[in-house]
Nucleic acid binder design. Structure first.
Lengths: 226, 226
DNA sequence: GTTCAAATGTTGTAATTCCAACAGACACGT
DNA sequence: ACGTGTCTGTTGGAATTACAACATTTGAAC
């Protein structure tokens, strides 16, 4: 597979960098394209990772097996998304998840050391790429922190309100749409779906919010929620 | 306050960089020292952050107010620790926590753009520093992911076992010490302390583990915990 | 419109957790 | 030895949640 022939996906990693510059750098980094078939393992728990993986096409699943061998899907990644940044940056950390191809998937491996270290001709684009990489990891960080803030609330009602007021804040409006369906939201907040549905309709009955499908409106200010 | 007069703390950000090189770079970045008194606000919720803060001496508290105005301490930071990396890397993110001085505290502000962007004479040490910064953010990331894996287990027993087997794995032994006392562990796992104590002693009665204070021993393999 | 599958809402019961209150163990200073 | 405070373990009742089973709504296909 020839690097030049590959269609580059939109990716936050390449934000602000032209397609031709991306290609030039990837060639400089000796990026390695690879194709996986459905159910192939891309990474396995316990492996050490030194490359960032960029999805060119297809779909990967980030999975984890719990102590009883039940496989759980943590995340689904598609074209333009990356995997392994955080692990690749740390030599002493091994994967505690596995990555499996959900369908035929084309990926690109970029060695983190090529990416992070000065090459002979350090260029502005290279610095931009490092900037982007750090930004991607930082964003994950903030999203994880946000999630923990919601999850650590002590009951379903508070988890929901924490999440919804946060979404309203991000959107800058008391009316907003959420990106999850009920089951996904329940998984995200680590609660039971049906119990969450019940709590949502209770909140609506009490006049605290209104919703229909993924469209929500908060009716009271945060301070008034006593 | 003169930069040259300041004693530099040990910090993962400066790992592998000599004290004199650190000073040279900080001067190049125009790092700004500042002193806060007890209860002074260092950052407030909603502010935009463009600098990394490095603690030289003293202690800061990362706090959050919930919807009812209850202040909660999320983290306590001391000499050598940093704050704001993730926020500083992202221009469009504002703080959702506040930072308050717990005592008289000396800090250093380093502009993220000075740190991440090429200066006229890009040097190897500068690249090392960027490398370290990215590694720090990546490590936070992995720690947060780990925590979420524990918290999202559905009951106290599974949270405990998830955490303890993880610790055993990190330590490479079924016998290990943990860094938390009971209250801290309960906060970390987002459960009630007394309920957690009860569950721990139940696990001990059932012969699944042994403990005394912060010293734990797992007695069965993960696969056998049915 | 009808049909069907998937998503969402509702309800009751069993299980779990929270909370408060208290008891024992331990370290510290006097 | 004696208090004192902190940490940890124990217990019972109130509150909350998980789970299963079923009802209703929605949207897409025909």
């Amino acid at each position: 597979m020839n690097l030049a022939a590959i269609q580059m996906p939109l990716s936050p990693l390449f934000s602000g960098i032209t397609d031709s510059e991306v290609r030039r750098m990837l060639a400089c980094f000796r990026a390695a394209p690879k194709t996986y078939n459905r159910n192939d393992f891309v990474f396995r728990v316990g492996e050490s990772v030194n490359e960032i993986l960029i999805i060119l096409s297809g779909k990967l699943l980030v999975t984890q097996e719990d102590m009883w061998g039940n496989r759980r899907i943590l995340e689904s990644l598609t074209a333009g998304q990356t995997f392994g940044e955080s692990y690749a940056c740390l030599n002493d950390e091994v994967l505690n998840v596995s990555v499996i191809a959900a369908e035929k998937t084309q990926v690109l491996f970029v060695d983190i050391n090529h990416l992070l270290e000065v090459c002979a001709n350090t260029c502005e684009t290279h610095m931009r790429l490092i900037h982007n990489l750090t930004g991607c990891i930082a964003r994950q960080n903030i999203n994880l922190t946000r999630k923990i803030n919601h999850i650590t609330k002590k009951n379903t009602r508070e988890k929901l309100l924490s999440f919804l007021t946060d979404e309203a804040g991000k959107c800058g409006s008391a009316t907003f749409d959420i990106a999850f369906n009920r089951q996904q939201l329940a998984d995200y907040l680590a609660v039971d779906r049906s119990a969450m549905s019940a709590e949502l309709s209770k909140l609506q009955k009490e006049g605290i919010l209104t919703y229909s499908q993924n469209h929500f409106t908060l009716l009271v200010q945060a301070e008034d929620m006593v």
